[in-house]
Nucleic acid binder design. Structure first.
Ligand code: MN
Ligand code: MN
Ligand code: ZN
Ligand code: ZN
Lengths: 138, 138
DNA sequence: AAACGGAATGAGAATTTTTCGCATCTTGAG
DNA sequence: CTCAAGATGCGAAAAATTCTCATTCCGTTT
């Protein structure tokens, strides 16, 4: 969390933006809605307006600092971009999320976009199911 | 569009449900939001309340008659289930959607769910990009 | 270090999407 | 045909997100 990270992303290094970036970097929870970020920051004593959370997360997304996900819950979920792209498998019972990367799938996706004449800009793969834990408890 | 289709799905064959199912079956547009279904039906002289559209589409989804998609627009998009499962490639410029099915990807998904200890219930793959048409117009 | 201009923030209002509550109307069983 | 359970419509309410605009902050220039 350096002001330079924001500068590099073409964003002014403002206090709210620093706080949000810091929070995301230090949070053990990797996938959070804007509302969740807002509340968690409040509890941590970092008071940033909800509208600003929304604005900044969207700016971070545009700058490539975070990824926005559209799971089945009907609201956006954000994740700080560390390292490389990955996809998600989500438990529909408890919300537990695991990440994975499959080169074969990635390659097929590029091939399909090409075949269809698209310039691929992005892609998202979500697998839904019941996690091992929830299966046991059933 | 038979009352039997609804009965089979465990739903009473009510007039609004019949109208909505008919509309979906006869619509040239395959992927529509609740609002779009509502407006299109109004124009077609079939007046069904918006709340009912939402309720019925959700019931149809539960019954397996339609699929609900979560594209990047922030609202649900519905599609009548004809034949078999498929995934989508969406143009981020014009909204054009093409469908595809890739056995290799499907198989890898099952494998991944298995490896992670999940009982897979569903999955969604969205590829985003610029379609051939929009590339030309750029 | 003070000043300035443009950009960012906060708070609440406003939008957008979806759900709820309840009085009224239908459907399907008997 | 009658009746109860269930469905619909409408407007109110929720939930998620964006917008407005007065105030504040950041970065650059004196
Ligand atoms: Mn992730
Ligand atoms: Mn489709
Ligand atoms: Zn679980
Ligand atoms: Zn296009």
């Amino acid at each position: 969390m350096q002001t330079s990270d924001l500068k590099k992303a073409g964003l002014k290094a403002t206090l709210p933006r620093m706080k949000i970036l810091n929070f995301l970097e230090s949070s053990r929870v990797r996938h959070m809605s804007a509302e969740e970020v807002y509340k968690a920051m409040l509890e941590a004593g970092e008071d940033v307006g909800l509208a600003t959370i929304y604005r900044v997360l969207t700016q971070f997304e545009t700058a490539g600092l975070v990824t926005r996900h559209h799971f089945e819950e009907g609201h956006s979920v954000f994740e700080l971009n560390l390292g490389e792209h990955h996809d998600h498998i989500v438990c529909v019972k408890c919300g537990h999320i695991e990440e994975f990367f499959d080169p074969t799938i990635e390659e097929r996706q590029h091939k399909i976009a090409e075949e269809k004449g698209f310039d691929m800009t992005d892609h998202a793969l979500y697998i839904y199911g019941i996690c091992a834990q929830c299966k046991k408890e059933a």
